[in-house]
């Protein structure tokens, strides 16, 4: 397998190119995805390679963008519908959670909806309250949807391919602060199926479960802690729906301590579900209460000084791990 270093967004883009070349039923629609290549350059070059039939700029109409995808998917195509910013899922939510998610079940299995929604979430760019959110817990709460949050260039490519090949409605949430992050990526087409966690680093003293970009911050924290003799097992669930609780629980049974980190608000976040699963399945193994580190219960603020205080980072993850280890 030949690999080379690519940025997160280039890796995603390569996955799009390769899957569209492989499967003529895949098409892409969204706001400024064709001529402009997407505001984050996620779709650069697709119009030139695949033409206007398969790569289309839409009006600003999120309900129609997703609804068109639902109808086309129900008819057997594999639409990729882009929502630009994750905050815009709210505009299209009826089509996502009442239509796409429920058709299979509500219609007694008569219809599959192989729709992929792409979007970019996450804070850290002073984009403020309507362009910075992490809403994965909303989506993960709806039976029928699958939600992935790639945390590396390798995963960005593998998960978009996995999503498009999946016969269910999937949402791939890129993190816009990770677009330039580099990593090794195989040249050939490959897919990462949803529901398979990545054990980023193995360790014995404490488990850290991190979501999306928090994996990058947790990795920095783990390196710092390693130099201090603390061995961290870092787990990236990759998808929050389905959630690979098996890998998480196995790790907690080994380390006996666990911290969960995400940049969505803590209350009702996916960390609450992970925490519950751990306590139900590994209570007797815990040497300390399950710890969470996440955003405070407020909209994402604009001021850099406030936003920095809002989003967890490596230093705060390291401190949280230290507090967890002090607990006897």
């Amino acid at each position: 397998m030949t690999t080379r270093e690519l940025t997160y967004v280039k890796a995603f883009n390569e996955g799009m190119h390769q899957i569209m070349a492989e499967d003529p039923d895949v098409f892409l629609i969204g706001e400024d995805v064709a001529g402009y290549g997407g505001v984050f350059h996620m779709f650069d070059g697709l119009l030139a390679e695949f033409g206007e039939r398969r790569v289309k700029d839409t009006p600003i109409a999120e309900q129609a963008i997703i609804g068109l995808g639902v109808g086309a998917a129900a008819r057997g195509l594999r639409p990729v519908c882009d929502l630009m910013f994750m905050d815009f899922v709210g505009v299209a939510m009826d089509q996502i959670f009442n239509q796409a998610a429920k058709m299979k079940y509500m219609f007694g299995g008569a219809v599959s909806v192989p729709l992929t929604i792409t979007t970019a979430g996450g804070a850290g760019m002073s984009a403020a309250a309507q362009h910075s959110q992490s809403l994965e817990a909303w989506l993960a709460h709806v039976p029928g949807l699958k939600v992935a949050m790639p945390a590396s260039p390798y995963d960005a490519k593998g998960l978009i391919v996995g999503a498009i090949r999946d016969d269910n409605p999937t949402i791939v949430v890129l993190n816009k602060k990770m677009l330039g992050v580099k990593g090794e990526v195989p040249e050939e087409l490959y897919a990462i199926p949803f529901g398979q966690a990545n054990v980023v680093t193995e360790g014995d003293d404490v488990t850290v479960v991190a979501i999306g970009r928090m994996v990058v911050e947790a990795r920095k924290a783990a390196e710092a802690l390693d130099k201090q003799g603390v061995s961290v097992e870092l787990i990236d669930p990759r998808s929050v729906q389905p959630l690979d609780t098996e890998t998480i629980v196995a790790s907690v049974k080994k380390t006996n301590r666990v911290l969960i980190v995400h940049e969505a608000v803590e209350f009702g976040g996916i960390g609450a579900e992970i925490s519950s699963q751990i306590q139900e399945q590994a209570f007797d193994y815990l040497d300390a209460p399950v710890a969470r580190l996440a955003a405070p219960f407020a909209p994402v603020p604009y001021a850099p000084v406030l936003e920095n205080a809002y989003v967890p980072d490596a230093a705060r993850i390291e401190a949280a791990v230290r507090r967890l280890l002090e607990r006897r």
């Binding site: 129609a64 609804g67 068109l68 195509l77």
Partner: peptide, 22 residues
């Protein structure tokens, strides 16, 4: 018959998708 829909207006974009597929 691509489905009845209990959300008022919910089926309209889906029909657009079926038309797109054709």
């Amino acid at each position: 018959m691509l489905g009845a829909n209990a959300i008022v207006g919910g089926g309209i974009p889906i029909a657009v998708g079926a038309a797109f597929a054709s």
